[in-house]
């Protein structure tokens, strides 16, 4: 059997020590119970604290189990919770951009639309909540594939159907686009899913810095593009919204 990683074993021992009831222990208690030098124990505790597995009581300086441990068992964010948190921000995005707003999450092999705000004109529109969109051609899908490894795997396995003459289907080309998406923090769909329609989307992160969804706007190229490119102010507005929703979910800005 391969040798185990000692610091992980020690961290596990600390968590067991702190587990069980309302236990709070000081640094010296923990160090002596595990036969460690105080400096060593402190280093491990600080790492655990940074990850949220351990919390330090500000008054006594003693350590206890952190809230993150409780959340480990229930990791996924409820999509309806996501919609409820995103509501005010997405309304404001629709209002300021003048375009329809969509919120998507990974579901099976594509993007599930969990929230949709109408374009703020008086035209008749149909609520698209519950609809599925493809991963490889839409801005929402590209963002998910670029930020969530599971979505990426789905995209690699998918058929990547060419919907328009501008759809990017070749895997190497798609990977380059995903890399660009990761670098710039947003993705664009410029008539790649529907002729005449363009969109831009950005990722939403939760408090564990995991991508949980994507938010974006979709509209006619005549309105949302200038000189064939997505308008910069629309990209900025979408990214602002994604940051605001992420902040509401507890994501730190670093």
């Amino acid at each position: 059997m391969a040798k185990n990683i000692q610091s992980l074993e020690r961290a596990a021992a600390m968590l067991r020590l702190l587990a069980g009831g309302e236990r709070r222990l000081g640094l010296s208690d923990i160090a002596s119970a595990l036969g460690l030098a105080k400096a060593t124990a402190h280093g491990i505790l600080r790492t655990l604290q940074h990850e949220g597995f351990v919390e330090q009581d500000p008054g006594s300086g003693r350590y206890q189990l952190g809230a993150e441990l409780l959340r480990l068992g229930t990791t996924y964010l409820d999509v309806h919770e996501l919609r409820a948190r995103a509501l005010v921000w997405t309304d404001d995005l629709a209002r300021s951009s003048g375009e329809a707003v969509y919120l998507g999450v990974l579901h099976q092999h594509g993007v599930l639309i969990v929230h949709h705000v109408f374009r703020p004109d008086d035209s008749r529109q149909v609520l698209e909540v519950g609809a599925m969109q493809p991963l490889h051609s839409t801005a929402l899908g590209k963002v998910l594939a670029a930020t969530d490894p599971v979505a990426h795997a789905e995209l690699v396995d998918a058929k990547r159907e060419p919907f328009t003459s501008r759809t990017i289907s070749d895997l190497d080309d798609v990977e380059r686009i995903l890399e660009l998406t990761r670098a710039q923090g947003y993705a664009v769909d410029n008539e790649e899913t529907l002729d005449g329609v363009a969109s831009v989307a950005a990722p939403i992160y939760d408090r564990r810095r995991m991508a949980v969804g994507s938010v974006g706007i979709t509209g006619a190229v005549e309105r949302v593009c200038r000189d064939g490119e997505l308008r910069a102010e629309l990209i900025a507005a979408v990214r602002d919204t994604a940051r605001s929703v992420s902040r509401d979910l507890g994501a730190k800005p670093f």
Binding site: A94, H116, V117, F118, Q125, L127
Partner: peptide, 16 residues
Amino acid sequence: DSVEDLRANWRRAAEW
């Protein structure tokens, strides 16, 4: 000026 002004401000975000 009038309630018609206010109506013009009203925007539908969703309709079921």
